[in-house]
Amino acid sequence: MPRSLTAPRSTAPSPAPGRVRRVLPGLAVSVVVAVAAYALSLAVPAASTALVAILLGALAANIGVLPGVLRPGLDVAAKPVLRIGIVLLGLQLALGDILALGPGVIVLIVAVVAGGTAAGILLGRALRIPRTQALLIACGFSICGAAAVAAAAGALTPDREDGEDEEVATERFETQVATAVALVVVFGTVLIPLMPVLTGAFGLGDRAAGTWIGASVHEVAQVVAAGSLVGEDALRVAVLVKLGRVLLLAPMIALLVAAERRGRRRTDPAAAHGADDAGARRSGPPLVPLFVIGFLVAVAVRSTGLIPTAVLDVAKPVQTLCLAAAMFALGTGVRIALLRQVGGRPVVLAAAVTVVVGLLGGAGALLTS
């Protein structure tokens, strides 16, 4: 008789409760901070929930008040919770609203995302910045800020040098992610007061000003802050243009995954021939990650117009809290010591991509106004 039918049933406890206990402290702290940041944004509209959460995470990390017991829960907030937030973000996007901007603005959105990403990759090579670091900055600054950084991080495979331990490569990659998030916060925050000044200096009307802001500023929350300084009409256009950039998150991540797969096949003959070994099984994530599919489904469902307003009213704060919890967790990786360690080249790249995206956005706003 098979051993499985004769062996006594194990009385060992399931590992699930133990994992829940490990995860709960950090996850609870992330949620509490997200709620606090959200409450602050309701009281002070200029205080972006996501930005406040990131800054609180960075502050906590740098003053040393985060015990190690929080790390498992913070990891959950930075990955699964973030992906839930990205899926729910799709419910803000109705294709009809984006298409109503007109073909010129749609071309501009594609040009900003594609041009900014390409510029980030090419300038990263010129500056001899690691491939993954350049891609993270390029995606974050061209698409939708920290959420795009995190989405790209889920699609990338950490580079390993010859003979290097996987743990070392993973730690370096996490530093690169934290660096990209920190740079998004710094440069995006600078753009909040700068963009209204620039649009005023060029004498742009509300539509052109909103188009430039939406096409150039990194985070959705930063777009809202900058657009509101110009006016309601500019804010409405800016948010729609920015959400058009967010919509391109899905195809860009799919392209990134496809590029990762091609790169691995070139460097891993076993993976190229489909060999069933450990290397082949780790050939990379699926071509279209599950959360990206969820994001697209959410956009499609919202575009049908069948979702009741009451459901959207509930989904919006849930999405905000999920992203805020994730931003706090990502912010805990923003350590001053790490930024000093990576040097000035990522900062130069971030500034250059900001300029490229801003120039593309400004030119497009003038042409489409």
Rank of each mutant, 00 (worst) to 15 (best):
M1S: 13
T6C: 13
A7F: 02
T11N: 12
S14N: 12
P17F: 01
R21Y: 01
V23N: 05
A28V: 13
A28P: 00
A28S: 15
V29T: 09
V29R: 03
S30E: 03
S30D: 02
V33E: 06
L40A: 15
S41N: 12
L42A: 10
L42E: 08
P45W: 12
T49F: 01
T49L: 11
L55S: 14
A58D: 02
I63S: 07
P67S: 11
V69T: 14
P72A: 11
G73C: 07
L74K: 11
A78D: 11
P80Q: 12
V81A: 08
V81L: 15
L82T: 05
R83S: 11
G85K: 06
G85M: 06
I86Q: 06
G90C: 07
Q92P: 00
A100N: 07
V105K: 07
V105N: 06
L108Q: 08
I109G: 01
I109F: 03
A111Y: 01
V112I: 05
V113Q: 04
V113R: 03
V113W: 02
T117Q: 01
L123V: 13
G124S: 08
A126G: 01
L127D: 00
R131D: 10
A134P: 06
L136S: 10
A138N: 07
C139A: 15
P158R: 07
D159H: 12
D162A: 15
E164N: 09
E166Y: 00
E167D: 12
V168W: 00
A169N: 04
R172A: 12
T175R: 15
Q176E: 15
A178I: 07
A178V: 07
V181R: 03
A182Q: 07
L183N: 11
V186E: 09
L194V: 14
G203T: 04
G203N: 04
L204P: 00
D206I: 01
A208T: 00
A208C: 08
W212S: 11
W212I: 13
E219I: 04
Q222G: 12
A226W: 00
E232D: 14
L235C: 07
A238F: 00
A238T: 00
L240I: 14
L240C: 03
V241C: 09
V241N: 07
K242G: 12
I253T: 06
V257Q: 07
R262N: 06
R264G: 07
R265G: 10
R265E: 14
T267P: 01
P269F: 09
G274V: 05
A275V: 11
D277S: 09
G279D: 14
S283C: 11
L287N: 04
P289V: 05
F291A: 07
F291N: 04
G294Q: 08
G294R: 09
L296I: 14
V301N: 07
T304A: 11
P308Y: 04
D313S: 14
V314Y: 05
A315P: 02
V318L: 15
A325N: 05
A326R: 09
A329L: 09
G331F: 01
T332C: 13
G333T: 08
V334D: 04
V334R: 03
R335M: 08
Q341A: 15
Q341F: 00
V347C: 05
V348G: 04
L349K: 06
A350N: 04
A351S: 10
V356Y: 06
V356E: 06
G361S: 10
G361T: 08
A363K: 10
A365W: 03
A365F: 02
A365K: 04
